[in-house]
Design a protein around this nucleic acid. Structure first.
Length: 485
DNA sequence: ATGTAC
């Protein structure tokens, strides 16, 4: 039976595993099947919110959870599961939960490298950002300049970035450099509601709002030369980072299935310590239908980032002629995946929920593109607006410790409302310009909401995953121009 | 994140 969330007010005594790994004992919340595990530096531990910890513990009560309910260093409270949460559930006995994926299914990041340098781009940055802002519709409710029919939209849900490339929005090489090649095969027929179709139709090829952005960056520092060579990154080169997801379509898929899975939890006798943990046995009809729809949402997001990439390339070609714009990689950071992992020495299929967490597969893993197979998967960690982003590389320790996962970004500290009270968009814009960063947003309030000060410093978050050894630092990239929703 | 509350 469903009850209200447990409201724990006091921090439990955490068990120190290392300076960067802290466990939440199973007696913190009744019904925990495994401990919680937090990846945090001593400094980040001081700022840990009780709600983040409680949510991490709540997830540990769900059936079939393996090893630990984990929180990455950028974790903060979310819907049911923390954002920055990683949880793997046995593929037979476990559950699947929309709260463990998030509303923005396959929100993710891609990075494009160019052979332009900072001095090529700086003089034109204002005009370039304006042009990008116009090339890619931006903001809440933004409508695309792309028109798709119902049957085309169905193919988008089925084929993801592959659809986009087949329609001329990119090249085959782009797919090779996407997680899952930009497409998860639907585990059944496509089944999404009319509302999903209605919301998805006008938004394919739009950036959205909130922390989503399109950023022109410059590689400032290389930490690992060999891996940077494999990723094609050199100091001084211009890169473009695109951060967005599945827009209204993914949101509607999540909403539709939350209703179903809330009932399913009761039907299958799963006790929820928080109703936001709505879930179903992953092998139940309800569970598989959510998973199939989630895959469709993920595919929509990959197609979205691919179409946006095409318009970014067009814009750069207008400004700089025949410039190289190869996709380095594209990662999902809100998704559940059926994966094989070695657990206690035994191979096991699990549904890994990564909500605000990035896959970080190491060298040799068959799912890492051939070009990177000898070094590992690029892990893309966007900073907040105006702070550095990092490109890391997945390491063996990720398979041992985190089901092949790492952090996904800086992580908010305060609410959007609080940020809007505290900051003025015009001031933020001036401060960023003084630091050499040109911004364009749909409205000044967007800049206040996303002020750099409302995020944890990205370097502190990256330090943890680097020190633990789940992903290693490869490059730091800094923004010179940003388009925001 | 989101037709920022059906």
């Amino acid at each position: 039976m469903t009850t209200q969330p447990k409201k724990k007010k006091t921090m439990p005594k955490l068990t120190r595993v290392t300076d960067y790994i802290w466990d939440v004992p199973t007696d913190f919340i009744e019904g925990m099947r495994v401990p919680g595990r937090l990846f945090l530096s001593p400094r980040l531990l001081k700022g840990l919110e009780i709600d983040t910890l409680t949510q991490t513990a709540n997830v540990a009560t769900l059936p079939g959870i393996q090893k630990y309910s984990m929180a990455m260093p950028d974790a903060h409270p979310g819907y049911g599961f923390p954002i920055g949460g990683v949880a793997a559930f046995d593929a037979e006995e476990g559950v699947i939960s929309p709260g463990g994926v998030g509303f923005d299914i396959n929100c993710g990041v891609r990075v494009i490298r160019t052979n332009l340098t900072e001095k090529d781009v700086r003089p034109k940055i204002r005009k370039l950002i304006d042009a990008l802002f116009h090339a890619v519709p931006t903001g809440v409710g933004a409508k695309s300049k792309l028109r798709v029919s119902d049957s085309e939209l169905r193919r988008v849900f089925e084929d993801g970035a592959k659809w986009a490339v087949e329609e001329g929005y990119g090249v085959a090489d782009d797919l090779e450099h996407c997680e899952e090649n930009g497409r998860i095969e639907l585990p059944g027929d496509l089944k999404v509601s009319d509302k999903v179709m209605k919301r998805g139709k006008p938004q394919l090829g739009t950036l959205g709002s909130g922390n989503h952005f399109l950023e022109v960056q410059c590689v400032r520092e290389i930490y690992d030369q060999d891996i940077a060579d494999a990723f094609g990154l050199r100091v001084g080169d211009i890169t473009v980072m695109i951060h967005c997801g599945s827009r209204g379509a993914g949101h509607q898929i999540c909403t539709d299935h939350l209703k179903v899975l809330g009932k399913a939890a009761k039907k299958y006798g799963i006790e929820l310590v928080d109703r936001q943990l709505a879930c179903a046995p992953v092998q139940s009809k309800e569970g598989q239908e959510y998973f199939a729809a989630m895959c469709a949402g993920a595919n929509y997001a990959w197609a979205n980032r691919q179409v946006i990439t095409h318009w970014v390339r067009e814009t750069f070609h207008q400004f700089f002629g025949d410039v190289e714009m190869d996709l380095v990689y594209d990662v999902a950071h809100n998704v559940a995946k059926l994966e094989e992992h070695v657990i206690d020495g035994k191979s096991q299929m699990v549904y890994v929920h990564r909500k605000g967490a990035t896959r970080a597969f190491p060298a040799g893993h068959p799912d890492v593109p051939k070009a990177y197979r000898s070094v590992g998967q690029p892990v893309l960690i966007p900073g907040s607006m105006g702070t550095p982003s990092y490109i890391l590389c997945g390491m063996d320790k990720a398979m041992e410790l985190t089901f092949g996962s790492a952090c996904h970004g800086a992580g908010r500290i305060g609410s959007r409302k609080a940020a809007m009270r505290k900051f003025r968009g015009a001031e933020i814009e001036k401060e960023l310009l003084a630091k050499g960063i040109t911004v364009k947003a749909t409205h000044p309030s967007v800049l206040a909401e996303e002020a750099p000060a409302v995020y944890k410093p990205s370097d502190a978050v990256v330090e943890v995953v680097h020190q633990v050894g789940i992903a290693c630092r490869v490059a730091q990239v800094v923004p010179i121009g940003v388009a925001k929703g």
